[in-house]
Each structure stands twice: as structure tokens, then as C-alpha cells.
Simulated assay, not measured.
Amino acid sequence: MGVGKGTIARALIKRTKRFGLDTDDLIESMENRKIKAIFETDGEAYFRKLEKKTAKWLEKNVKNAIISTGGGFFKVENLDRIGAVIYLKSSFDGILKRLKEHENADLKLAKRPLLTDENKARALFEERSSLYEAKADIIIDVENRSVNEITQDLITLLNLKEKKDKA
């Protein structure tokens, strides 16, 4: 949550010319409402059911794409059948710093309902860190690194072909 999954995914999409999907965007489209509203109205358990539904759809219908997921998506049962799992690793303080220093910091923080209570968010982070590592095919430290550095490392690690525009 807040580590830069979307930013890194967009950079990979641009450099590799692959299609990109964001699971939170898919869920918002399916529900015709924002994640925050889903949490407020129906709760986290309902949201997790939507993630499972999205994961099943991805497995069946999507190949060779860059998929950015929400922070809890790692719990879906079929994650390993969707594609390579990359854990963008950062400290909790690094994530908070990144979000607070963003030009749209208020928006970035507001759209993350699990970050409304910093102590609970920190506890969730601590609980999830080892679980993320256990699920990941690739772990890459993103703290204090540029998007370009991270993207280049991922292209190399995943053996993705970087497509140059011939213009």
C-alpha cells in the first residue's frame, strides 16, 4: 500500500509496450464506485471477495500484461497462476515519506482507507511484510531509488524485451 506499484507498473508498460491493468481500477469499474466507498459501505470482507473475482478473471483472460495490485491482493488463491509476483519492498516510514512528499499527498493518503489510522497501518505492514516475501518470485528494494532504476532492474530480472520506438 503506497509503495509505488502503480507508478512502477506505468513505467514498465511504457518501456515494454505491454498492456497494463490495475486490479483496484478493475474493481472500481465493476462496482461503479471508488475503493474507499466500497470499504465504507460494504466493508473489507466484501472488497476481498471482489479481489478474488478479479483474480479469477485475470487468470482466465489476461496474458503478457503488467498487473498492478492492491496491497491485500497477495491473498488470492490463484496468484501464482496469474503471473510472476513482484514485491516492491520498502520500510513503512519510507512509504509514508513517499506518500507525504507526493505533489498530490492529500489525494494519495485519502484514497487509502487502511492508512487512516497510522498505528493500525504500521501493524498491518509488519504483519504483511514476511507474507509478501513468501509469495514473491522477485523482491526488489525500492526505497530511495528512482523509478528508472527500479524499472530497468525489473526488465532485466523478468527478461522482458524493451521495445524501442522506431520513429
Score class of each variant (00 low, 15 high):
1 M>W: 00
2 G>H: 01
3 V>L: 02
4 G>I: 02
4 G>Y: 03
5 K>D: 02
6 G>Y: 00
7 T>E: 12
7 T>N: 10
7 T>K: 11
7 T>I: 13
8 I>L: 09
9 A>M: 08
9 A>V: 04
10 R>C: 11
10 R>W: 07
11 A>D: 07
13 I>R: 10
16 T>A: 04
18 R>N: 11
20 G>H: 06
21 L>S: 05
21 L>P: 01
22 D>G: 08
25 D>Y: 11
25 D>N: 14
26 L>W: 04
26 L>T: 07
27 I>C: 02
29 S>R: 13
30 M>F: 13
32 N>Q: 13
33 R>M: 14
33 R>A: 10
34 K>H: 02
35 I>W: 04
35 I>A: 08
36 K>Q: 09
37 A>S: 12
37 A>C: 06
37 A>E: 14
38 I>M: 08
38 I>H: 04
41 T>V: 15
41 T>N: 14
44 E>Y: 06
45 A>I: 15
45 A>D: 15
45 A>C: 09
46 Y>C: 11
47 F>V: 00
48 R>Q: 11
49 K>L: 13
50 L>A: 01
50 L>G: 03
50 L>Q: 05
52 K>E: 15
53 K>D: 07
53 K>T: 12
53 K>M: 13
54 T>I: 11
56 K>T: 12
56 K>H: 13
57 W>C: 07
58 L>Y: 00
58 L>N: 00
60 K>G: 10
61 N>E: 15
62 V>P: 04
64 N>K: 14
69 T>K: 04
69 T>A: 12
72 G>T: 06
75 K>Y: 15
76 V>T: 07
76 V>L: 08
76 V>R: 00
77 E>S: 15
77 E>C: 10
77 E>H: 14
78 N>L: 06
78 N>D: 01
78 N>K: 07
80 D>M: 01
82 I>A: 01
82 I>D: 04
82 I>R: 00
84 A>D: 11
86 I>D: 03
88 L>V: 05
89 K>L: 01
90 S>E: 06
91 S>F: 09
91 S>V: 06
92 F>S: 03
92 F>K: 07
95 I>E: 04
97 K>A: 03
98 R>Y: 05
99 L>T: 01
100 K>E: 11
102 H>G: 06
104 N>K: 14
105 A>M: 08
107 L>Q: 12
108 K>R: 12
110 A>H: 11
110 A>C: 03
112 R>I: 05
113 P>A: 05
113 P>Y: 02
115 L>E: 01
115 L>I: 00
115 L>Q: 02
116 T>Q: 13
118 E>M: 08
119 N>T: 10
119 N>F: 02
124 L>T: 11
126 E>P: 07
126 E>Q: 15
127 E>I: 04
128 R>W: 03
130 S>P: 10
131 L>H: 13
132 Y>D: 09
133 E>H: 10
134 A>S: 14
135 K>A: 10
136 A>Q: 00
136 A>K: 01
136 A>P: 02
138 I>G: 06
139 I>L: 05
141 D>Y: 02
143 E>P: 05
143 E>M: 03
146 S>R: 02
146 S>A: 06
147 V>M: 10
147 V>F: 11
147 V>C: 09
148 N>W: 08
150 I>A: 02
150 I>Y: 03
152 Q>I: 06
153 D>P: 09
154 L>Y: 09
155 I>Q: 05
155 I>V: 12
157 L>P: 05
160 L>F: 14
161 K>H: 14
163 K>D: 14
165 D>N: 09
166 K>R: 13
